[in-house]
Computed example of a mutant assay.
Amino acid sequence: MKVFKKLSLALIAIVTMSAHAQDKKPLSPAATATGKINGANITINYSSPSVKGRTIWGELVPYGKVWRAGANAPTTFETDKKIMVEGKELPAGKYAFYVIPEKDNATVIFGKDPAIGANKYDMANDQLRVTVKPKKSKTIAESLVYAVNKDNVTLSWEYWEIPLKIK
Rank of each mutant, 00 (worst) to 15 (best):
M1A: 12
M1Y: 04
K2Q: 10
V3S: 14
V3I: 08
F4P: 00
L7W: 10
L7P: 09
L7K: 07
A10K: 09
L11E: 06
L11T: 10
I12C: 14
H20V: 14
H20E: 12
A21E: 10
A21Y: 15
Q22D: 11
P26V: 15
P26R: 14
S28V: 11
A30L: 03
A30K: 11
T34V: 12
T34P: 04
G35F: 03
G39Y: 05
T43G: 00
I44V: 13
N45H: 13
N45L: 13
N45R: 15
Y46D: 12
S47Q: 07
S48Y: 01
P49G: 07
V51F: 04
V51Q: 00
V51M: 00
K52W: 09
R54A: 00
G58Q: 10
G58H: 13
L60K: 09
P62Y: 12
Y63T: 08
Y63H: 14
G64L: 01
K65C: 01
V66N: 13
W67V: 01
R68V: 00
G70Y: 05
G70C: 08
G70M: 11
A71F: 05
N72Q: 13
P74S: 10
P74H: 05
E78L: 12
K81W: 04
K82V: 04
M84G: 04
E86P: 05
E86H: 04
K88L: 00
L90V: 03
A92D: 06
G93S: 10
A96P: 03
F97K: 04
I100M: 11
E102T: 03
K103V: 06
D104N: 13
D104I: 03
D104H: 10
A106I: 05
I109D: 07
G111D: 08
K112S: 10
I116Y: 03
N119T: 15
K120C: 08
D122V: 05
D122K: 13
D122G: 06
N125G: 04
N125A: 14
D126Q: 07
D126F: 00
L128G: 10
R129L: 03
V130Q: 14
T131P: 12
V132G: 11
V132T: 15
K133M: 08
S137T: 14
S137I: 08
K138T: 09
T139E: 14
T139W: 01
I140N: 11
A141M: 11
E142G: 10
E142R: 14
L144N: 05
A147C: 02
K150C: 00
D151R: 05
N152V: 12
V153R: 04
T154F: 09
L155A: 02
L155I: 03
W157L: 02
Y159R: 15
Y159E: 07
W160M: 00
E161D: 08
I162E: 07
I166Y: 00
I166S: 02
K167W: 01
